[in-house]
């Protein structure tokens, strides 16, 4: 019998820390995919991450690289500041849906439109998590939250904003993809997309953006398994997965 081989270990780009995330939340998986990518591409020591306001505000305690923590919605502005003065570093923002798609809409659209050479990981779980389950710009029609107790009324609250699709409309070259992590098969695809995003940045090609559909069992009021099913049944049909824009495929006039 040969000596046991390690086949699974904590990436170096993650700290040895307990996270504060709820059971069944997929933030942990997404953190790991980002960290694995930084390790595999050898980027950790020249990376600056930007934490948002939201559930992942404390991600600066989990990623084992230089981190800044932004005001609500302003992570893309901070990232712009860092990347412009340190153009040879790798910069990423990690943002939730309230942060990115509500209070930070201007910042994300303009950073993408300027073609800032950083990467955004956008975690869309259709609800405000940290403040305890309020309606987000990505909350699904009729979904119940504490601020839409009778369900999201699209006549007054509008339809969920499909951020990846919106950003893909911009003429500026970018890499934009929407993925999910609620099953192993989706997770493998998500990893490929996140790796591609950082790869494009490392090549100084373009702005890169990966929207990751994520679960929030606590605020959805569902078990982890029910949450996975709800994401598959309700979110995936609306937030269509896949590549939205690629710098390798220029827009057709």
């Amino acid at each position: 019998m040969s000596a046991p081989t390690t086949i699974f270990r904590r990436p170096e780009a993650l700290r040895d820390a307990f996270t504060h995330y709820c059971p069944g939340c997929t933030h942990g998986i997404i953190h790991r995919l980002v960290a694995e990518t930084l390790d595999e591409l050898g980027l950790r020591e020249r990376t600056v991450g930007i934490a948002p306001v939201g559930c992942s505000v404390l991600c600066y305690n989990y990623f084992n690289c230089d981190m800044q923590e932004a005001a609500h919605g302003r992570a893309p502005a901070l990232a712009t500041g860092v990347k412009r003065v340190l153009p040879d570093r790798i910069v990423f923002t990690y943002q939730g849906d309230g942060d990115l798609a509500s209070i930070g809409t201007a910042e994300i659209i303009h950073a993408a439109n300027r073609g800032e050479k950083f990467t955004t990981i956008f975690v869309n779980n259709a609800i405000y998590g940290m403040t305890g389950g309020q309606m987000a710009p990505t909350t699904m029609p009729n979904q119940v939250t504490t601020t839409c107790p009778r369900g999201r009324d699209v006549n007054t609250a509008g339809w969920p904003i499909p951020v990846a699709d919106v950003l893909a409309q911009l003429r500026t070259p970018a890499y934009i993809e929407r993925v999910a992590v609620h099953t192993p098969r989706y997770t493998v695809q998500a990893k490929r997309a996140i790796r591609q995003a950082f790869q494009y940045q490392a090549e100084n090609r373009c702005y890169s953006f990966v929207e990751v559909l994520s679960t929030c069992p606590t605020n959805w009021g569902k078990t982890p398994n029910e949450s996975v099913q709800w994401l598959e049944d309700v979110m995936v049909p609306y937030f269509k997965l896949g590549l939205k824009k690629s710098p390798d495929r220029p827009p057709v006039d």
Binding site: V48, I50, Q68, A70, A71, R74, P76, A77, L78, A79, T80, G81, V82, R84, V85, L86, R89, A106, E107, I109, H110
Partner: peptide
């Protein structure tokens, strides 16, 4: 895109 963003870019660059 706004003074909000300009001043937060200052944060990012100063912290860098």
């Amino acid at each position: 895109e706004s003074e909000l963003a300009a001043s937060q870019m200052i944060f990012g660059a100063a912290a860098a």
